[in-house]
Design a protein around this nucleic acid. Structure first.
Length: 203
DNA sequence: TGCCAGGCCCTCTTTAGGGCCTT
């Protein structure tokens, strides 16, 4: 059974909120975790073929000038598909990143077998006392060292992996759970908040 | 931030509405 501490954590920067309305990925960042250790990283800007808005330039720090020099999305996504292979996947608010991954993979005619888990949904259950469950808030909540730029793909993927490992550590400590599987974390992301303690105690 | 999304989740719910998250 796949372990929860061996997977690929990914984050997309994009031109907007919805691939169904023509938005594209402009940067992918990812880290590969094996037994809770970062063993590989992937980062690339990609040219969507159109200019992104001033809001996106300001929000991400990724300029149209930077994107003009970047390889096209299709070229980067082929490389990224080889990077993550059939690994299980993790993202913060995964429904967002999954929509873009599915859209970009469809364009390059590639499929993938890995399943997504969402660190935000798990975070809402494991860190119920956090002020909110934004990525940056949880980074502070679990006291991760902050030395990079949020809203850049690799940094956000690194921070997501740190939050994920902190959640696994808390579950191990609070419930004496060891060998936590990816499937267990996916189930945890769906149980009601009131059922979290009972669910984990039964593991 | 917006002529624009979508899934989750709570509640003043389920014949619905609105906040949270992601860019």
């Amino acid at each position: 059974m796949a372990s929860a501490d061996s997977l690929v954590v990914l984050d997309f920067e994009t031109s907007g909120m919805s691939p169904d309305y023509g938005d594209r990925a402009i940067e992918i960042g990812a880290v590969r975790l094996e037994k809770g250790v970062v063993v590989d990283e992937f980062q690339a800007l990609m040219n969507p073929g159109f200019r992104v808005s001033g809001f996106i330039e300001n929000f991400t720090g990724i300029s149209n000038q930077m994107l003009a020099k970047a390889p096209p999305c299709e070229q980067v996504m082929l490389q990224f598909a080889d990077f993550f292979g059939d690994s299980n996947l993790l993202a913060h608010n995964a429904s967002f990143d999954q929509r873009f991954l599915d859209s970009e993979m469809k364009l390059i005619k590639r499929a993938y077998k890995g399943e997504f888990c969402c660190s935000m949904l798990v975070g809402r259950r494991v860190f119920q006392d956090a002020p909110n469950h934004k990525l940056g808030t949880l980074v502070n909540y679990v006291d991760l060292p902050v030395d990079g730029q949020f809203h850049r793909a690799l940094y956000d993927a690194q921070m997501t992996s740190g939050i994920w490992l902190a959640m696994l550590e808390k579950i191990r400590a609070d419930y004496a759970c060891h060998d936590i599987s990816f499937a267990t974390m996916k189930k945890l992301s769906r149980v009601s908040k009131k059922q979290v303690a009972g669910f984990l105690a039964s593991m």
